[in-house]
């Protein structure tokens, strides 16, 4: 019987690692695994060989939705207008501490 190339396909997974308590999960890269358990184990083997992680998230790549770079104008510029969100917008006397 002809081997069906589809039958051996494993999904691609994106890997996110939290290196230490207090940090966010950071994107580390991608790898192939047949299921989620394998993906986490592979992520441990590939991306934390040098003790770089204490928490691993894996997501099938096709479940990640990304914004379009050409949209970034409309997505992000409005936020750039709202400078009052930034602490440096406010002028306060030097004597004021702890704020």
């Amino acid at each position: 019987m002809e081997p069906n190339p589809q039958s051996e396909k494993w999904p691609l997974w994106e890997v996110f690692i939290r290196a230490r308590q207090g940090l966010d999960h950071k994107h580390a890269g991608s790898l192939y695994a047949a299921d989620a358990r394998m993906a986490i184990e592979n992520a441990r083997d590939v991306y934390t060989r040098r003790n770089e992680g204490i928490s691993i998230w894996v997501v099938e790549s096709n479940h990640i939705h990304a914004s379009n770079p050409s949209e970034s104008d409309s997505l992000y510029d409005p936020a750039n207008d709202k400078v009052y969100r930034h602490p440096s917008f406010y002028h306060l006397p030097d004597e004021l501490k702890n704020i």
Binding site: L31, Y32, N42, V46
Partner: peptide, 11 residues
């Protein structure tokens, strides 16, 4: 049989 498993068994 696949790169990831090569790494796993070497570990």
């Amino acid at each position: 049989p696949i790169l990831e498993q090569d790494i796993a068994i070497s570990n």
